[in-house]
Structures are given as structure tokens and as C-alpha cells.
């Protein structure tokens, strides 16, 4: 789309005009929902693995409860990896918005936005709506999703690799195990970090709903449709990207 199409809403002159823009391209949305679904599955199956509460009776031959949940976890693990790879590719291939979550720590504008956004959330001020990610949101995604996500993927794959010593994953990521002080420690960190997603999910859902409600910017829908609404004067594909 060349120019942004404005939808004039103002009846009286001087009233704000709203725009609608295609922000989240389909690979971003696809990756988002793959990630969301796999993280949910991973967290629940992971907790089950840690504390398997179902106790089937009779011959072990007839049951595969723990085995099945572990399989689900591993499939979801692969899905998460897949989602991440799509998103990484699209970080480079996509539009500017797809890069807007990056923490541009070397740019003053990013820091200013971070401060402003945090301040506005705290003081319950409206501030600007961003078409891409605001610096705070971007930072949260980077730390909680990208950072923790890779930690989970790497530690998870390292644990996964243990069942086939010398195999592909062992060669690729097996070194993580001694690095973190052995397999038992890797379990502990993998499990501890899993909770990071719960913390993220609470914050994320709350902020998404809060923001959406506050600004009527169609935020929630945007991760499905790709379109976001904004008013004149809101920040387009944010300043640190220019």
C-alpha cells in the first residue's frame, strides 16, 4: 500500500481523523499464533511432565500417559522453534513494523519512548498510540518472548538431545548441559524459566486489552487481521526506525 488511507470520521472540522493501516503482515500473525499456541501447550505439558498426577492402573504395556504428554511437549517444542524461525526470517524480510519491537538501545529516541511509555502506563496518561510496537512492548517481547523463548528452546533441545547421544541435537546443542552444570540443573532452569511465560502472558494480555480499550485502536483484532487504527498525530513505524 502506497499511501495510508484515512477514514475521515470528524463531523465537525478539527475533530480527530482516524486511519487504518495494515501493520502485521501474515507471517507475523502466523508466527504469533503458532508461538501462543505452542507456549500454552508447552507450559501445561511441561508442568505435567514435572509432576505427573494421573496414575493409570494395570500393565504398563497398556498405558503411555507420561510418554504421550512428553511427545506432545516435544511436538509443541518443535512448533515453537518453527514459529521462531518464521519470525526471525520475517524480521528481515517484513515491513518496518516487523522490526519495531527490536530494542534499539543505541538510539536516544528509543530510550525516550521507553521512558515516556512506562510513565504513561504508570500515570494512566493516554500518550501516543504506536503503529508498530512501542519501546516498552518491544522490550517486553524481546526479554520475555525472544530471550526466554530461545532459552527454553535451547535448554529444551539440549534435554531432548540426551535421549540420542551423538545424534544431531546432541552435536548441535549438547554442550549446553555441562555449561549449565549438568542435566539436572538444566531441568531446573528450564522449569524455572517456564514460569516467565506466565508472568509475560498476564502482563501481555492485560496490556493488550488495556491499550485496546483505552485507545480504541483495534489492537486485539490487529493480531488477527493485521490492521490497526490510529489518529492523526499517532506515531507511525516508530521513530527509532527512521
Amino acid at each position: 500500500m502506497a499511501a495510508t488511507s484515512y477514514r475521515p470520521l470528524g463531523i465537525h472540522s478539527g475533530e480527530p481523523t482516524f486511519g487504518r493501516k495494515y501493520v502485521w503482515q501474515w507471517p507475523v500473525r502466523l508466527a504469533h499464533w503458532i508461538n501462543a499456541a505452542s507456549v500454552l501447550t508447552l507450559f501445561l505439558s511441561g508442568l505435567y511432565i514435572s509432576n505427573p498426577v494421573l496414575a493409570p492402573n494395570g500393565e504398563p504395556f497398556n498405558h503411555f500417559v507420561m510418554g504421550r504428554i512428553r511427545e506432545i511437549h516435544f511436538v509443541a517444542g518443535y512448533a515453537l522453534l518453527f514459529g521462531f524461525l518464521i519470525r526471525v526470517y520475517w524480521f528481515y524480510a517484513g515491513n518496518n513494523y516487523s522490526r519495531s519491537g527490536f530494542p534499539f538501545v543505541w538510539k536516544a529516541a528509543w530510550w525516550n519512548d521507553l521512558r515516556a511509555q512506562a510513565w504513561q502506563y504508570l500515570k494512566l496518561e493516554r500518550g501516543h498510540v504506536h503503529l508498530g510496537h512501542n519501546a516498552l512492548a518491544g522490550l517486553a517481547y524481546t526479554v520475555f518472548v525472544v530471550g526466554l523463548g530461545w532459552i527454553q528452546i535451547f535448554t529444551g533441545l539440549a534435554l531432548y538431545s540426551e535421549s540420542n547421544p551423538g545424534g544431531f541435537w546432541d552435536t548441535a546443542v549438547g554442550w549446553i548441559i555441562p555449561l549449565l552444570g549438568g542435566s539436572w540443573r538444566v531441568h531446573m532452569w528450564h522449569h524455572t524459566c517456564a514460569w516467565g511465560f506466565v508472568v509475560f502472558a498476564i502482563l501481555h494480555l492485560y496490556i493488550v486489552m488495556f491499550d485496546s480499550h483505552q485507545f480504541k485502536n483495534g489492537l486485539i483484532g490487529s493480531i488477527i487481521s493485521g490492521y490497526k487504527f490510529y489518529e492523526e498525530g499517532d506515531l507511525d513505524h516508530d521513530r527509532w526506525l527512521s
Partner: peptide, 11 residues
């Protein structure tokens, strides 16, 4: 704040 149209790489 800058205008929405500013510097867009691609859609």
C-alpha cells in the same frame, strides 16, 4: 509527533 506517512520502507 511526526506525521504517519513519514519514511516508510515497504508495506
Amino acid at each position: 509527533a511526526p506525521a504517519p506517512e513519514a519514511s516508510e520502507k515497504k508495506d
